[in-house]
């Protein structure tokens, strides 16, 4: 009973926020709604006893991908109205694509996966815990590729830094871009001073 309640709560949250991603006017708000969608789907995963997938969804998508995405959206300074300009023009095509995809999805999975009977999956045995299972092979059977992946991450850091790092900040050197973009009022400014009294 409580499980069904949680399921409907998370499902409704996922659907509502997914709709808000499309509807909301500002890109930043859309990205934030997408974060909530991911959290709701992570809740659904955990409800299905796939706790590793749920946690990874939060860690990777919410923690890393969406944060990065938000940074990009904030930096780009996108105009929401301009993005929506071709709405009527593209609407017929979008409707065609939507109806075709919907038809395929209904044909493929409606009778196997939809309906209330599928909301509550069959229980696994008590000893089943996929984080523990993953952990027990990660450092034993897959120790070698795990170490290689660690080396790969270190390499990614070094490669990224060596491509972008341009000397320490406090080094005294000529900065051409500053010199070019300088304005007259940065160099020269007028202040009003009191006239000295003539003696």
């Amino acid at each position: 009973m409580i499980q069904q309640f949680i399921f409907y709560l998370f499902s409704a949250m996922a659907i509502a926020t997914a709709a808000m991603v499309i509807i909301s006017k500002s890109p930043v708000r859309a990205a934030l709604f997408l974060v909530v969608t991911f959290i709701a789907s992570a809740g659904l995963w955990i409800l299905l006893q796939a706790e590793f997938l749920g946690l990874v969804l939060i860690l990777v998508y919410v923690g890393a991908v969406m944060t990065l995405f938000l940074f990009v959206v904030m930096m780009l300074d996108m105009d929401g109205i301009e993005l929506r300009s071709g709405f009527v023009q593209y609407l017929p095509f979008a409707l065609i694509v939507l109806s075709v995809m919907l038809a395929f999805i209904i044909l493929a999975v409606w009778h196997t996966s939809f309906g209330l009977g599928h909301a509550n999956p069959s229980k696994e045995t008590a000893a089943y815990n996929n984080i523990a299972l993953l952990g027990s092979v990660l450092y034993t059977q897959y120790a070698y590729p795990f170490v290689l992946a660690g080396a790969l991450l270190l390499l990614a850091i070094i490669a990224a830094i060596s491509l972008t790092f341009r000397g320490t900040r406090n080094a005294k050197k000529q900065r051409v871009e500053w010199q070019v973009s300088v304005r007259a009022q940065d160099r020269l400014y007028k202040t009003s001073m009191k006239n000295e009294k003539r003696l």
Partner: peptide
């Protein structure tokens, strides 16, 4: 690691480990 890989997993990870530095080195001269 790639030359000695006996498993698709270690093979793929080492393939990336070997090609990623090459991409960076090509761009290393600013």
């Amino acid at each position: 690691a790639l030359i000695s890989a006996g498993n698709f997993l270690s093979l793929y990870v080492s393939l990336e480990l070997f090609s990623l530095p090459l991409y960076a080195m090509v761009a290393l001269r600013r």
